[in-house]
Amino acid sequence: MVEYFQGGGAEVIVCQGSALSYPWHSHVSTLTLGAVLEGVVELETDQGTGIYRENGLFALPPYMPHSLKAGSPYTLVSLCVRKAPAASGVFREARESAAALLRRAVGLPEVEERLLEELSLLSGRRSGEGEGPLAELRARLEREPELPCSLEDMAELACMSKYHLVRAFRREAGLTPHRFQLQNRVRKGQRLLAGPATVAEAAAAAGFCDQSHFDRQFKRLVGLTPAAYKRSCTAFSGP
């Protein structure tokens, strides 16, 4: 079972008794932390692979590519806080929202305390946005993923050949430009589904011309179908 609790620039995800695995991806807009309550998960990043068991905690800054595999059925609490609130003067408000969501979702003070303490530490680390043409391209693909942008268009924006672009982008972001754009289209679909948008409306607004393509990519990255995700957000929306 997967439950989503959202509000105030924060999100708590509870995977209970889950065997879901997540492919190589990144969280471009959020500081992400995970606390394993039961079972085992394997987290791979570009810095290595870690095995996390009961009471294990991991932290991911924005843009860090990673994958997660189930070592056994697990219960995992993930806290995601959007990078803008965490990096600005309203971090206290975002932290308070995160605390309220954790109390509602988990109700375990010791887990809440550990996650919030690590959140404070993670918010002060370098976020990895970078500068220059590649960073500008990455920002555009995050901000407006739904807009058509071919590899040739991306190469022109980044002022380099398309072959050099693919290598350089993968080196800096951990994903190809196309995969990064596709990931951000799914993320935009998530944000829309958390509101009043239907699945068809979210698919079109996120840049998918085919709803079945949206369904497949969404399930691959999120672990739920768009419809199941929307039901979860409706039933478990935060303050």
Rank of each mutant, 00 (worst) to 15 (best):
T198G: 15
L137E: 02
G107N: 08
Y4V: 10
R138T: 13
E96P: 00
R114G: 00
E117G: 07
A194W: 01
I51C: 11
A197Q: 13
A84C: 01
D153I: 04
P145T: 05
M160G: 03
F91E: 09
E129F: 15
S237E: 12
L76V: 03
A205E: 15
G195R: 15
G39F: 02
E156A: 13
R53W: 02
R171C: 02
R179M: 07
A135Q: 08
T30F: 14
T234H: 10
G238V: 10
T176L: 06
N55F: 06
D46Q: 12
R231H: 13
P65R: 07
F208P: 00
K188E: 14
E117A: 15
F180N: 02
Y22M: 06
C209I: 04
Y63A: 02
L141Q: 08
A155G: 07
A155D: 08
Q6C: 03
P61S: 12
L60F: 12
E201C: 05
Q217P: 00
D215Q: 13
R171I: 00
L151C: 03
G89K: 04
K162F: 06
L31M: 14
A94F: 11
G195D: 10
A94W: 06
F58H: 09
Q6P: 00
E152S: 15
E11N: 11
L108D: 07
R95I: 01
V2Y: 00
H164A: 13
A98Y: 00
S78T: 15
T225E: 13
A206I: 02
L182F: 02
S212I: 09
L224A: 06
R187D: 08
M64S: 12
C159H: 12
K162E: 14
V186N: 01
H213V: 11
A105N: 08
R53H: 10
P177S: 06
R103G: 00
L141E: 09
D46L: 12
E3M: 02
T30R: 11
F218H: 09
